[in-house]
Design a protein around this nucleic acid. Structure first.
Lengths: 110, 110
DNA sequence: GTTTATTATCGTAATAATACGATAAAGATA
DNA sequence: TATCTTTATCGTATTATTACGATAATAAAC
């Protein structure tokens, strides 16, 4: 029965929800934190830092990548991931604007 | 097989992911926007504004409520929902801090 | 008291997300 | 070339989320 109805919403609302979904799992939050700490984007130690199987971490990385939040390229047998700071900035701006918009109408009520 | 592993993560990461999950569906984003617009918390017109069945909207409201983002009390046959501004502020602060923390280490890399 | 309007909840179906073992792929190394 | 290391992908199981009809619950209106 549940054909998703997400297409019926405003693009801005859907966009925001997609951004939020990127952070909607602690593994992805942890991955972003971990990546931000590392200077050189020699990665793959990420797997050691996240308490999940390698396949699962790889899956979460793929999700972050498909959202554009991180970029990755293969380097021999290893991979190299790092944060897409531009996209991250966009994302935090959109979230900030969302909250600011809400707060504009912060008049009491209940 | 997938017993959730969320308990293996840091409380801060899990907390952030829960906050993010609240916004991870356009209906919930739209509900928050709609609620913020209304002065009096005479609600229920929310259902008319969201392109989903009444039961589904009620379900999304319940989720927002259980996260503390909105408060609601019954008023006769109607219900009355409004935004919990305190919680919303907490939430936006946590998100802002998360992004700020990431950005501290914004040194180039890729 | 009966009807009406409004909202929550239950049951259930379908889709999405999470998790991992197994395996493939791709270079490095012996 | 054979082996090893590292990572991605496939298949699949399990759980969570989404969605809605039907129905219950509640108080107002008649």
């Amino acid at each position: 029965m549940p054909r998703t109805k997400k297409h019926l919403f405003r693009k801005t609302d859907t966009g925001l929800s997609e951004i939020a979904r990127a952070l909607a799992h602690p593994a992805r939050v942890a991955i972003l934190k971990e990546l931000s700490r590392r200077q050189e984007c020699v990665c793959g130690e990420i797997v050691d830092r996240i308490p999940l199987a390698q396949a699962t971490v790889s899956q979460h990385l793929k999700e972050l990548k498909s959202l554009g939040l991180i970029v990755g390229h293969i380097e021999g047998p290893k991979s190299c991931y790092c944060i897409n700071w531009k996209k991250l900035e966009e994302m935090s701006t959109l979230l900030k604007e969302f909250f600011d918009d809400l707060k504009i109408n912060h008049q009491r009520c209940c």
